[in-house]
Protein backbone atom coordinates (compact mmCIF):
# COMPACT_ATOMS: atom_id res chain seq x y z
CA UNK A 1 0.00 0.00 0.00
CA UNK A 2 2.72 2.43 0.95
CA UNK A 3 5.17 2.07 -1.89
CA UNK A 4 5.20 3.29 -5.40
CA UNK A 5 7.79 2.59 -8.03
CA UNK A 6 9.44 6.04 -7.79
CA UNK A 7 11.70 7.75 -10.29
CA UNK A 8 14.60 5.32 -10.21
CA UNK A 9 16.53 7.14 -7.49
CA UNK A 10 16.64 5.92 -3.91
CA UNK A 11 13.84 7.52 -1.86
CA UNK A 12 14.51 10.91 -0.30
CA UNK A 13 12.69 9.81 2.83
CA UNK A 14 12.24 6.22 3.92
CA UNK A 15 10.14 5.45 6.99
CA UNK A 16 9.94 1.90 8.31
CA UNK A 17 7.91 0.81 11.32
CA UNK A 18 8.49 4.21 12.89
CA UNK A 19 6.96 4.50 16.36
CA UNK A 20 7.10 7.18 19.00
CA UNK A 21 5.69 6.80 22.49
CA UNK A 22 5.48 9.40 25.24
CA UNK A 23 5.06 7.23 28.29
CA UNK A 24 1.96 5.15 27.61
CA UNK A 25 0.73 7.45 24.86
CA UNK A 26 1.55 6.28 21.34
CA UNK A 27 1.93 9.39 19.18
CA UNK A 28 3.02 7.53 16.04
CA UNK A 29 2.40 3.85 15.61
CA UNK A 30 4.33 1.70 13.13
CA UNK A 31 4.44 4.20 10.25
CA UNK A 32 5.68 3.02 6.87
CA UNK A 33 6.05 5.14 3.75
CA UNK A 34 8.60 6.58 1.41
CA UNK A 35 8.95 9.87 -0.41
CA UNK A 36 10.59 9.96 -3.81
CA UNK A 37 13.21 12.49 -4.73
CA UNK A 38 11.66 15.58 -6.30
CA UNK A 39 8.23 14.76 -4.95
CA UNK A 40 5.95 16.99 -2.86
CA UNK A 41 4.55 14.69 -0.21
CA UNK A 42 1.73 15.89 2.02
CA UNK A 43 0.87 14.82 5.53
CA UNK A 44 -2.70 15.44 6.61
CA UNK A 45 -4.38 14.63 9.86
CA UNK A 46 -6.51 16.06 12.64
CA UNK A 47 -4.95 17.85 15.58
CA UNK A 48 -3.03 15.43 17.78
CA UNK A 49 -2.89 12.79 15.03
CA UNK A 50 0.91 12.51 15.24
CA UNK A 51 1.94 14.70 12.28
CA UNK A 52 4.23 17.05 14.13
CA UNK A 53 5.81 14.17 16.05
CA UNK A 54 6.58 12.49 12.72
CA UNK A 55 8.06 15.73 11.35
CA UNK A 56 10.17 16.18 14.48
CA UNK A 57 11.52 12.64 14.23
CA UNK A 58 12.46 13.23 10.61
CA UNK A 59 14.18 16.55 11.36
CA UNK A 60 16.10 14.96 14.30
CA UNK A 61 14.45 17.02 17.04
CA UNK A 62 13.10 13.94 18.83
CA UNK A 63 14.27 10.35 18.88
CA UNK A 64 11.97 7.55 17.72
CA UNK A 65 11.02 4.88 20.23
CA UNK A 66 11.42 2.15 17.61
CA UNK A 67 11.61 1.67 13.87
CA UNK A 68 13.81 3.60 11.50
CA UNK A 69 13.75 6.60 9.21
CA UNK A 70 16.28 7.68 6.62
CA UNK A 71 16.61 11.04 4.93
CA UNK A 72 18.67 10.99 1.73
CA UNK A 73 20.01 7.66 2.93
CA UNK A 74 21.06 8.88 6.38
CA UNK A 75 19.54 7.37 9.50
CA UNK A 76 17.82 10.10 11.56
CA UNK A 77 19.26 8.70 14.80
CA UNK A 78 22.70 7.39 13.81
CA UNK A 79 23.56 10.16 11.33
CA UNK A 80 21.82 13.19 12.77
CA UNK A 81 24.55 15.57 11.63
CA UNK A 82 24.36 14.37 8.03
CA UNK A 83 20.55 14.55 8.08
CA UNK A 84 20.72 18.16 9.30
CA UNK A 85 22.88 19.07 6.32
CA UNK A 86 20.34 17.48 3.98
CA UNK A 87 17.21 19.14 5.33
CA UNK A 88 15.75 22.61 5.49
CA UNK A 89 13.01 23.02 8.07
CA UNK A 90 10.11 25.39 8.55
CA UNK A 91 8.70 24.73 12.00
CA UNK A 92 5.03 25.09 12.85
CA UNK A 93 5.64 28.11 15.09
CA UNK A 94 7.89 30.84 13.79
CA UNK A 95 11.54 30.48 14.69
CA UNK A 96 12.55 33.74 13.07
CA UNK A 97 14.81 35.98 15.11
CA UNK A 98 12.88 39.22 15.14
CA UNK A 99 15.87 41.27 16.24
CA UNK A 100 17.85 40.40 13.12
CA UNK A 101 17.30 41.64 9.60
CA UNK A 102 16.53 39.18 6.79
CA UNK A 103 20.05 39.57 5.51
CA UNK A 104 21.61 38.93 8.91
CA UNK A 105 19.42 35.86 9.49
CA UNK A 106 20.41 34.29 6.20
CA UNK A 107 24.07 35.17 6.68
CA UNK A 108 24.22 33.65 10.18
CA UNK A 109 22.39 30.49 9.13
CA UNK A 110 24.78 30.19 6.19
CA UNK A 111 27.62 30.21 8.73
CA UNK A 112 25.91 27.43 10.68
CA UNK A 113 26.29 25.30 7.56
CA UNK A 114 29.91 26.30 7.03
CA UNK A 115 29.27 28.30 3.85
CA UNK A 116 31.91 30.75 2.66
CA UNK A 117 31.32 34.52 2.62
CA UNK A 118 30.93 34.85 -1.15
CA UNK A 119 28.61 31.85 -1.38
CA UNK A 120 26.49 33.18 1.48
CA UNK A 121 26.11 36.58 -0.11
CA UNK A 122 25.24 35.14 -3.49
CA UNK A 123 22.75 32.65 -2.11
CA UNK A 124 21.13 35.18 0.24
CA UNK A 125 20.62 37.68 -2.58
CA UNK A 126 19.18 34.97 -4.81
CA UNK A 127 16.78 33.71 -2.13
CA UNK A 128 15.65 37.13 -0.92
CA UNK A 129 14.86 38.04 -4.48
CA UNK A 130 12.93 34.79 -4.94
CA UNK A 131 10.80 35.40 -1.83
CA UNK A 132 10.34 39.10 -2.60
CA UNK A 133 12.19 40.45 0.41
CA UNK A 134 15.25 41.96 -1.21
CA UNK A 135 14.07 45.52 -0.70
CA UNK A 136 13.34 44.78 2.98
CA UNK A 137 16.53 42.87 3.63
CA UNK A 138 18.03 45.35 6.11
CA UNK A 139 14.92 45.84 8.22
CA UNK A 140 14.57 43.81 11.46
CA UNK A 141 12.26 40.82 10.95
CA UNK A 142 10.20 42.04 13.90
CA UNK A 143 8.86 44.77 11.63
CA UNK A 144 7.68 42.27 8.96
CA UNK A 145 4.13 41.06 8.41
CA UNK A 146 3.30 37.40 9.13
CA UNK A 147 3.57 36.51 5.45
CA UNK A 148 6.95 38.22 5.09
CA UNK A 149 8.29 36.35 8.12
CA UNK A 150 7.13 33.04 6.69
CA UNK A 151 8.79 33.83 3.36
CA UNK A 152 11.95 34.74 5.21
CA UNK A 153 11.81 31.38 6.99
CA UNK A 154 11.49 29.65 3.64
CA UNK A 155 14.53 31.53 2.34
CA UNK A 156 16.45 30.70 5.52
CA UNK A 157 15.52 27.03 5.28
CA UNK A 158 16.92 26.91 1.76
CA UNK A 159 20.15 28.84 2.38
CA UNK A 160 22.34 25.72 2.29
CA UNK A 161 20.65 24.14 -0.75
CA UNK A 162 19.04 21.23 1.13
CA UNK A 163 17.79 18.19 -0.74
CA UNK A 164 14.74 17.78 1.48
CA UNK A 165 12.56 20.69 2.58
CA UNK A 166 10.29 19.97 5.56
CA UNK A 167 7.45 22.41 6.16
CA UNK A 168 5.09 22.10 9.12
CA UNK A 169 1.92 24.08 8.38
CA UNK A 170 3.72 26.85 6.51
CA UNK A 171 0.62 28.89 5.64
CA UNK A 172 -1.36 28.64 8.86
CA UNK A 173 -2.57 32.05 9.94
CA UNK A 174 -1.64 33.79 6.70
CA UNK A 175 -3.96 35.83 4.50
CA UNK A 176 -5.01 34.38 1.11
CA UNK A 177 -2.51 36.53 -0.78
CA UNK A 178 0.41 35.38 1.37
CA UNK A 179 -0.72 31.75 1.09
CA UNK A 180 -0.85 32.03 -2.67
CA UNK A 181 2.64 33.55 -2.81
CA UNK A 182 4.00 30.66 -0.72
CA UNK A 183 2.24 28.11 -2.91
CA UNK A 184 3.80 29.67 -5.98
CA UNK A 185 7.18 29.59 -4.27
CA UNK A 186 6.81 25.89 -3.50
CA UNK A 187 5.60 25.16 -7.03
CA UNK A 188 8.62 27.03 -8.36
CA UNK A 189 10.90 24.90 -6.18
CA UNK A 190 9.24 21.73 -7.44
CA UNK A 191 9.72 22.89 -11.01
CA UNK A 192 13.47 23.02 -10.41
CA UNK A 193 13.21 19.29 -9.83
CA UNK A 194 15.95 18.58 -7.34
CA UNK A 195 14.16 19.34 -4.10
CA UNK A 196 11.93 16.95 -2.20
CA UNK A 197 9.23 18.64 -0.13
CA UNK A 198 7.49 17.17 2.87
CA UNK A 199 4.48 19.34 3.61
CA UNK A 200 2.38 19.04 6.73
CA UNK A 201 -0.83 21.02 6.38
CA UNK A 202 -4.39 21.47 7.57
CA UNK A 203 -5.52 23.08 4.35
CA UNK A 204 -7.08 20.63 1.91
CA UNK A 205 -6.90 23.05 -1.00
CA UNK A 206 -3.20 23.47 -0.32
CA UNK A 207 -2.61 19.73 -0.25
CA UNK A 208 -4.76 19.22 -3.34
CA UNK A 209 -2.91 21.86 -5.29
CA UNK A 210 0.64 21.11 -4.25
CA UNK A 211 1.05 17.47 -3.30
CA UNK A 212 1.95 14.66 -5.66
CA UNK A 213 1.02 12.21 -2.95
CA UNK A 214 -0.18 12.49 0.56
CA UNK A 215 -0.68 10.43 3.67
CA UNK A 216 -3.58 10.89 6.06
CA UNK A 217 -2.58 10.15 9.62
CA UNK A 218 -5.03 9.54 12.44
CA UNK A 219 -4.40 8.26 15.94
CA UNK A 220 -0.74 7.83 15.01
CA UNK A 221 -1.41 5.54 12.05
CA UNK A 222 -1.47 6.11 8.32
CA UNK A 223 -5.10 5.57 7.34
CA UNK A 224 -4.75 6.48 3.66
CA UNK A 225 -1.91 7.12 1.27
CA UNK A 226 -1.89 8.02 -2.40
CA UNK A 227 -2.22 10.86 -4.88
CA UNK A 228 -5.11 13.29 -4.29
CA UNK A 229 -6.94 11.74 -7.28
CA UNK A 230 -6.45 8.21 -5.97
CA UNK A 231 -7.68 9.19 -2.54
CA UNK A 232 -10.77 10.93 -3.88
CA UNK A 233 -11.71 7.88 -5.87
CA UNK A 234 -11.20 5.69 -2.81
CA UNK A 235 -14.07 7.37 -0.95
CA UNK A 236 -17.23 5.26 -1.12
CA UNK A 237 -19.79 6.86 -3.41
CA UNK A 238 -18.87 9.05 -6.26
CA UNK A 239 -20.95 12.10 -5.43
CA UNK A 240 -22.08 14.05 -2.48
CA UNK A 241 -25.48 15.63 -2.37
CA UNK A 242 -26.06 18.47 0.05
CA UNK A 243 -29.76 18.96 0.79
CA UNK A 244 -31.02 22.03 2.56
CA UNK A 245 -34.47 21.73 4.24
CA UNK A 246 -36.97 24.29 5.48
CA UNK A 247 -37.26 22.51 8.82
CA UNK A 248 -34.65 21.01 11.12
CA UNK A 249 -33.23 17.67 9.99
CA UNK A 250 -34.38 15.06 12.50
CA UNK A 251 -32.93 11.62 13.06
CA UNK A 252 -35.93 9.78 11.61
CA UNK A 253 -35.61 11.76 8.36
CA UNK A 254 -31.92 10.86 8.17
CA UNK A 255 -32.78 7.20 8.73
CA UNK A 256 -35.37 7.33 5.95
CA UNK A 257 -32.90 9.00 3.58
CA UNK A 258 -30.37 6.25 4.27
CA UNK A 259 -32.97 3.72 3.11
CA UNK A 260 -33.34 5.28 -0.34
CA UNK A 261 -31.82 3.60 -3.41
CA UNK A 262 -28.28 4.82 -4.31
CA UNK A 263 -27.91 6.59 -0.94
CA UNK A 264 -24.94 5.08 0.82
CA UNK A 265 -24.74 7.38 3.80
CA UNK A 266 -26.70 10.30 5.18
CA UNK A 267 -25.56 12.63 7.89
CA UNK A 268 -26.44 16.00 9.35
CA UNK A 269 -24.22 18.76 7.99
CA UNK A 270 -25.97 21.56 9.89
CA UNK A 271 -29.30 21.78 11.68
CA UNK A 272 -31.23 22.31 8.42
CA UNK A 273 -28.83 20.55 6.07
CA UNK A 274 -28.17 16.88 5.34
CA UNK A 275 -25.24 15.45 3.46
CA UNK A 276 -25.81 12.35 1.37
CA UNK A 277 -23.09 10.14 -0.13
CA UNK A 278 -24.43 8.61 -3.31
CA UNK A 279 -23.49 5.58 -5.35
CA UNK A 280 -24.52 4.75 -8.88
CA UNK A 281 -25.38 7.16 -11.66
CA UNK A 282 -28.93 8.14 -10.73
CA UNK A 283 -29.62 10.82 -8.14
CA UNK A 284 -32.92 9.94 -6.39
CA UNK A 285 -34.32 13.46 -6.46
CA UNK A 286 -38.01 12.55 -6.41
CA UNK A 287 -37.57 9.97 -3.66
CA UNK A 288 -35.78 12.52 -1.48
CA UNK A 289 -38.58 15.04 -1.96
CA UNK A 290 -41.19 12.38 -1.17
CA UNK A 291 -39.44 11.18 1.99
CA UNK A 292 -39.10 14.79 3.15
CA UNK A 293 -42.82 15.40 2.72
CA UNK A 294 -43.75 12.26 4.62
CA UNK A 295 -41.54 13.43 7.52
CA UNK A 296 -43.13 16.86 7.63
CA UNK A 297 -40.22 18.65 5.99
CA UNK A 298 -39.60 20.22 2.62
CA UNK A 299 -36.52 20.50 0.42
CA UNK A 300 -35.35 24.07 -0.01
CA UNK A 301 -32.21 23.52 -2.02
CA UNK A 302 -29.99 20.72 -3.32
CA UNK A 303 -26.43 20.79 -4.63
CA UNK A 304 -24.41 17.94 -6.08
CA UNK A 305 -20.65 17.84 -5.86
CA UNK A 306 -17.81 15.48 -6.48
CA UNK A 307 -15.77 14.42 -3.45
CA UNK A 308 -13.13 16.89 -2.34
CA UNK A 309 -10.03 16.15 -0.40
CA UNK A 310 -11.93 17.37 2.64
CA UNK A 311 -14.47 14.62 2.07
CA UNK A 312 -11.62 12.16 1.84
CA UNK A 313 -10.18 13.54 5.04
CA UNK A 314 -13.47 13.39 6.93
CA UNK A 315 -14.18 9.95 5.56
CA UNK A 316 -10.94 8.56 6.94
CA UNK A 317 -10.70 10.55 10.15
CA UNK A 318 -14.35 11.03 11.10
CA UNK A 319 -16.02 14.16 12.41
CA UNK A 320 -15.10 14.04 16.08
CA UNK A 321 -13.00 16.86 17.50
CA UNK A 322 -9.44 15.92 18.48
CA UNK A 323 -8.69 18.29 21.26
CA UNK A 324 -5.30 17.76 22.81
CA UNK A 325 -3.24 19.55 25.40
CA UNK A 326 0.49 19.54 25.85
CA UNK A 327 2.14 18.47 29.10
CA UNK A 328 3.62 21.90 29.64
CA UNK A 329 2.50 25.42 28.96
CA UNK A 330 3.75 26.98 25.79
CA UNK A 331 4.86 30.54 26.03
CA UNK A 332 4.99 33.41 23.65
CA UNK A 333 7.39 36.13 24.64
CA UNK A 334 6.58 39.58 23.36
CA UNK A 335 9.56 41.59 22.18
CA UNK A 336 8.94 44.26 24.79
CA UNK A 337 9.73 41.76 27.57
CA UNK A 338 13.29 41.53 26.38
Amino acid sequence: MNRRPGNGNPPAILVEHLTKKFGEFVADDDLNFNVDQGEIFGILGPNGAGKSTLIRMLNTLITPTSGAARVMGYDVVQRRGSVRHEIGVIAQASTIDQDLSAWESLDIYGKFYGMGRRERRQRATELLEAVGLLEWKDRPAGTYSGGMRRRLEIARGLIHRPHVFILDEPTTGLDPQSRRVIWELLEGLRAQGNLTILLCTHYMDEADRLCDRLAIIDHGKIVALGSPRELKSSVPGQDILTVQFFQEVLDDLLAALRGLPNVQEAGREETHTARLILSGDVVPLEAIAEVSRTHGNKVKNMSLQEPTLEDVFLHYTGRGLRDTATQEYTYAVPTMMR
Binding site: N59, T60, L61, G81, R84, H85, I87, V89, A91, A93, S94, T95, I96, D97, Q98, Y109, F112, Y113, G114, R156, T330, Y331, A332, V333, M337, R338
Partner: peptide, 15 residues
Protein backbone atom coordinates in the same frame (compact mmCIF):
# COMPACT_ATOMS: atom_id res chain seq x y z
CA UNK B 1 13.08 34.01 26.02
CA UNK B 2 14.86 32.67 22.92
CA UNK B 3 13.84 29.15 23.86
CA UNK B 4 10.21 30.22 24.30
CA UNK B 5 10.29 32.07 20.97
CA UNK B 6 11.53 29.05 19.05
CA UNK B 7 14.98 30.43 18.28
CA UNK B 8 16.62 27.31 19.71
CA UNK B 9 14.29 25.03 17.74
CA UNK B 10 15.60 26.81 14.66
CA UNK B 11 19.18 26.10 15.81
CA UNK B 12 18.52 22.44 16.56
CA UNK B 13 17.60 21.51 12.99
CA UNK B 14 20.94 22.83 11.75
CA UNK B 15 24.30 21.05 12.17
Amino acid sequence: DDRARGIHEGYFVTP
